[in-house]
Design a protein around this nucleic acid. Structure first.
Lengths: 242, 242, 242, 242
DNA sequence: AATGAATGAGATTTCATTCAT
DNA sequence: GATGAATGAAATCTCATTCAT
């Protein structure tokens, strides 16, 4: 009874350990540069053991992505109310991102991995059908896109905005900022504030850029995360969605 | 005299040959996947010879960037008039980009390489001094940033816009679009129109996003490049900056 | 008492299970390609458990051989009459082979394994003493050899025929045909008729080749197995040894 | 002039060195057991260097085969007269085999490799068309088969003999004998006489087995290679084709 | 100046086998 | 007795870089 449970827990812990080490290395060196050997060494396991938990390098890396994305989505959904306006949904989305990121490096890794998973990830606008074939599991992508679509319907965004394109733009930009910040600062623990400033900045610009002409910009304001976030540990006061 | 000159000319030609071949391969396979061996084979030289011209793979790739940027800058400067408004300068910038790209793959390669050179490339806002140390040669970067700055001064853009950040955003987004388009379409010769559509779309959104509230959006319009660009060969009618 | 017996029975059943699974895999993929992991998976046991029953991969595979050979020998001996002529004995041998093979894949596996066990398996003529040391358990080998010997004594075969050599030739050829047939057809269930044709063909040639000059070839005829054999399930009408 | 030639010669020598070392290891350990690493160590080269000469393990091994077969075929053709009878051709074939083998280990390796190349090598009878598709380059195979065919036409062999099948039987048996002898004796230098005895024995039996009933066996005699062959160095007196 | 040749270091992956529980 | 977990050792192959000629 307890045994099976404990075994399962231990297995999950090992998996988590491996993912943790892989993430740390990705943050330090970037995705491409991290090898199975290094991950094994960091986790104090043999290379062969890694393959017990992840049947290939590729699968390990993909699992990191889906795991991180899954956490984020769950958190967002727990706070999201279907009757929210598109703009409020997007602002909540941003708040969730800040929150989650305050507690773990998941999102930073997720975006850092974007390049790795990009091959199946269309930037240019594709029809919804095509996209479904290419990456059916990317709920994160779909979530953002749906919010953009709703914003158009609600009249908050311009009619000629292409939701798929904008979605990819947002994700890609987040990914880029993370990439650059991490590489540049070299000490991830210092990342926090400056990183969020930049991201929020970009997010804000895109919101304004796609907003319908004449809309009051105060409606697009994202609030202030300055000095309220820490990369690890619990963050202090959180942003209240305006 | 004449001998030394000829030697130098030949050396420059060899360098150009190598860069040309490397670019072609980058377009076909992406930066990471291109090896020195492949470049050598395509250039019909030995690997060792490559090292006579570029002391490492890294340096070869960086030189591709600076070369491409140099061409573009010269072209832009030949058309640019210091008395132009910031908005007109940026629109001219976009037109030049379309033009240059119509005649060569330089810019596409330049952006495709961005990931590779990113480590020295500041995304987050740094002081001008710091920036100078990090990447003194990136005039391209500086040019865009200066136009953004001017736009702020002229009242076209919001006062709180961070020029360095926006510059990097623009460059990074171009880079991303190129990456994805090339990878997704797999046939570079078909890239043209769709690629420019997306780029222009994003460029437009950013212009709007940073524009001062209340500015007339018609002043930000970029014109239409649809069907006017070809990936290789001279392009037909060009866009007139509005 | 009863407990010890039951344990032993259970142990034997486990062993049989493992051997059964290993055989199935050998037929599907060939000897070299089958790993302990695969056998364990097919048997729904852990790899470690395999090692409780067979102390090494090698030993497992050898045991498959001896087990299969043992079955065959018992069947042959149940039909064999010591007063039969050598030629009739050999023909009965062939009939038994066809029969056994009709009911199980034992023999096909046995021959398929030959390469694997070859190191201890003398091809070149060795003295009887030496042979005894090398492979004491290979009664199958000895049986055929004794029949050849008897055939020489009875004047059916040439005096200068080397029984050990011919025996190995016969076994090896069967092995080869099985190897090739299985690999080539890729669908073991379709093997049956064509396989027997070839084997009988070779067996016939060897009989003729070792027969005394001038002997009437009708005495060497093996009959016809065409369409009478099925690879699995019970075969219909059997061949009557002529 | 001289330089290019010398380079080419050196390259050929390196290739030959690698093949030589690979062959030696194959003789000592069998094909499957030999790794690129071992070959490299024996040749006192790095693994990477091996890949400079043979683009994969597979290709190295196949080249060993084709090289050895090529030598043999050339030698045979230099002695063969198209007007010879099929029987004489086959006997010459055997003499050539003995000769070549007396001077090098080529043939021993060739047959030792049979398992490795077998996958494309049908044992069961296939139509000539099919065979051509599967292994068009196996001239050795075709040569023997053509001799068997001619023997049937000339009335030396039975009408119902299947040339493809017999050819494969002959090659496979040679291969098996080599396999077993080499593995059993473990000292290749002692292989010589006993090996040839066995092979000749088998070859003789097959000739008799496929010969037309009633043919005078003295016409099938292969002569005597006993004590006349050495595995390395030049062999003494050679067999005269009877 | 040019290059063929060589290589060290490292990547991913597999597998027979052991051992604590 | 059974097994999940772990692993050492080895296999194939790649690539940026160096060096003698």
């Amino acid at each position: 009874m307890g045994i099976a449970e404990r075994k399962e827990r231990e297995r999950a812990e090992r998996k988590a350990l491996i993912i943790r080490c892989a993430k740390a290395l990705i943050l330090e060196q970037g995705v491409e540069a991290v090898s199975m050997g290094e991950i094994a060494k960091r986790a104090e396991l043999s290379k062969a053991t890694l393959y017990l938990y992840f049947s290939s390098r590729d699968i390990l890396f993909r699992e990191i992505c889906s795991e991180a994305g899954f956490h984020f989505i769950k958190y967002f959904q727990s706070l999201h109310n279907p009757r929210m306006s598109a703009l409020d949904s997007l602002k909540l989305f941003w708040k969730c991102y800040v929150d989650i990121f305050g507690k773990s490096d998941d999102m930073i890794v997720l975006f850092n991995m974007k390049e790795y998973i990009t091959p199946d990830y269309p930037f240019i606008s594709v029809s919804d059908d095509e996209y479904g074939v290419l990456a059916p599991s990317f709920e994160l992508f779909n979530m953002i896109r749906d919010m953009i679509k709703a914003g158009i319907d609600e009249g908050a965004f311009e009619q000629d905005v292409n939701p798929t394109l904008i979605t990819h733009t947002i994700i890609s930009l987040f990914s880029l900022i993370v990439d650059n910040t991490v590489k540049y600062l070299k000490k991830p623990q210092e990342v926090d504030v400056v990183l969020f400033d930049e991201m929020q900045n970009i997010f804000q610009i895109i919101l304004r850029g796609i907003a319908r002409e004449g809309i009051d910009r105060s409606r697009l304001a994202l609030g202030d995360v300055r000095k309220t976030v820490k990369a690890s540990g619990s963050s202090g006061e959180k942003i209240i969605v305006g």
